[in-house]
């Protein structure tokens, strides 16, 4: 019987929600697991681990990325924004605020991925139509809401954002 071989650990430093974060992790550590288990940022959820459901969507340098399809080491020297970086209970971001106003969530498991996705979308498309709003969220799965109130949330978030800018 061979002796157990410890995994090689790599130093990874990622700027997460504007704060440089460091951990020593194996090369195969997924960004989603790195955020959740190494950094304790459990707001990013994992729904499928094959890039289809979008629950784990975070922003990497402002663009939506599936954290389950990226290794933590690949995020080295990049800026990652998670749901925790988009607002707090006392100071919610516009998309978060819109979701609470429009009943845009039920169980809330997929919600962080929608919020990050919509946040990035509205940066590029500040005034979407209803059809565009639906298209914008059609890469994320939700099993609870039937999407109708998420579409509504996108439109409401655009309003809140416009009013605040």
């Amino acid at each position: 019987m061979s002796e157990p071989v410890p995994e090689e650990l790599l130093d990874v430093t990622v700027t997460v929600n504007d704060v440089p974060r460091h951990a020593r992790v194996p090369a195969r550590r997924l960004l989603s697991d790195f955020l959740r288990h190494d950094l304790g940022l459990t707001g990013t959820h994992v729904g499928c681990e094959h890039g289809v459901c979008g629950a784990c969507t975070v922003l990497v340098d402002g663009a939506p990325v599936r954290a389950c399809l990226m290794f933590a080491v690949s995020a080295q020297a990049h800026a990652v924004t998670t749901i925790e970086g988009l607002g707090t209970i006392d100071a919610m971001g516009p998309v978060q605020q819109a979701f609470t106003e429009c009943h845009g969530l039920q169980c809330g498991f997929c919600t962080p991925g929608f919020v990050t996705t919509i946040t990035a979308y509205l940066e590029e498309n500040p005034d979407p139509t209803q059809d565009e709003a639906r298209e914008a969220i059609s890469g994320n799965l939700c099993r609870c809401t039937g999407y109708q109130n998420i579409v509504k949330s996108v439109l409401r978030a655009a309003e809140i954002k416009a009013a605040g800018s």
């Binding site: 959740r36 940022l41 459990t42 707001g43 990013t44 959820h45 994992v46 998670t82 749901i83 925790e84 988009l86 607002g87 707090t88 209970i89 919610m92 978060q96 979701f99 609470t100 106003e101 009943h103 969530l105 809330g108 498991f109 919600t111 962080p112 919020v115």
Partner: peptide, 19 residues
């Protein structure tokens, strides 16, 4: 009435099993 669980859930404060 707006849901009381939502502020926590939309800000990443939910505590699901794997959290």
């Amino acid at each position: 009435v707006r849901r009381r669980e939502d502020p926590r859930l939309v800000t990443g404060g939910g505590k699901f099993l794997d959290d």
